[in-house]
Nucleic acid binder design. Structure first.
Lengths: 161, 161
DNA sequence: TTAATTGCAAACGGTTTGCATGGGC
DNA sequence: GCCCATGCAAACCGTTTGCAATTAA
């Protein structure tokens, strides 16, 4: 009965990995699917409560961990003390992108410019580093840190006084 | 009396920013100066205790924060729940490099291969993203995640059984 | 049926804060 | 002497764990 190719790809991946499809897991997944933000566990929990008031924060954490482990979700650390979770919208990991992180208001902007060049450089680098350090590279992240449009102006005001 | 250009550059920067040169701060700095590892606050604290048994962990945190703020130290988040601190060895930020992070044992390897190409791509990307998103970029990080030499073999053993 | 999953409460671990004491300048 | 800086203890906050009850398969 497994692998019936009935639901979305992540359901199959759950099954294949031997995990159960439950209401809380479906709910967490639907929340991730319906946002383009970079949600923390707490963010997901709050949204989940609106649909299922009896869901527990613990379950949200465990679902997010599980999804991360089976490669359906990617976990990011932007250095503000809480992890963010983002859906891998495609089993083949299309939609590769990176992040601009505002050091002041912590907002995050996705970008995917110059991906062709980036991918080429990364491949080259990965190859060299694998050989040099015998390191098996699974994935990479590029974060730009700075000030978003609004926060630049806010900073400017502070300097003015 | 300020700005006498007597001590190392970071002492001057402390002075210029209006902060005091104290024993704990010198100790923390000397520890960072004498390692090539990526130390956590706790790591620094343990090393500091060996020299000054009355130093407090809080002071280590505050020193590291201060150094980070005045640009003498860089703080990294590799996603294992604790921040790492690394000395900027040069006021002009030479020695730019990035990291390989082992997802299993959390060890970190520095690399600076292909820096020429990387810097070019990053400059180009920064320029475009600044214009496109009105984002003022201060710095960036590139992290490769994967398995180090030892951990690949450990994983292999696990699979064998 | 029955083992995986859930929700609660309590623990955990890294980091921060309040406050009285101590030490640069 | 004036404040900034320190050390201690306690608070904080995101995350994890133990455990009994629930539920998917």
């Amino acid at each position: 009965m497994r692998n019936r190719m009935c639901g979305p790809w992540w359901e199959n991946r759950l099954n294949d990995a031997g995990f159960r499809l439950t209401n809380p897991r479906e709910l967490v997944m639907s929340i991730l699917r319906n946002t383009d933000k970079h949600l923390s566990a707490e963010d997901v929990y709050v949204k989940a409560l609106a649909v299922n008031p009896s869901i527990g924060l613990t379950t949200v954490y465990r679902s997010l961990d599980l999804f991360t482990q089976i490669g359906v979700v990617q976990r990011f650390d932007f250095g503000d003390g809480k992890a963010r979770y983002e859906l891998n919208r495609n089993p083949l990991s299309k939609g590769h992108h990176h992040h601009l992180v505002c050091m002041r208001c912590k907002s995050i902007i996705d970008y995917n410019d110059f991906m062709q060049e980036e991918v080429e450089l990364m491949k080259k680098t990965e190859k060299a580093l694998s050989k040099k350090h015998h390191f098996k590279i699974m994935h990479h992240t590029i974060h730009f840190y700075g000030l978003c449009n609004e926060c630049q102006h806010a900073e400017q005001k502070m300097i003015d006084y």
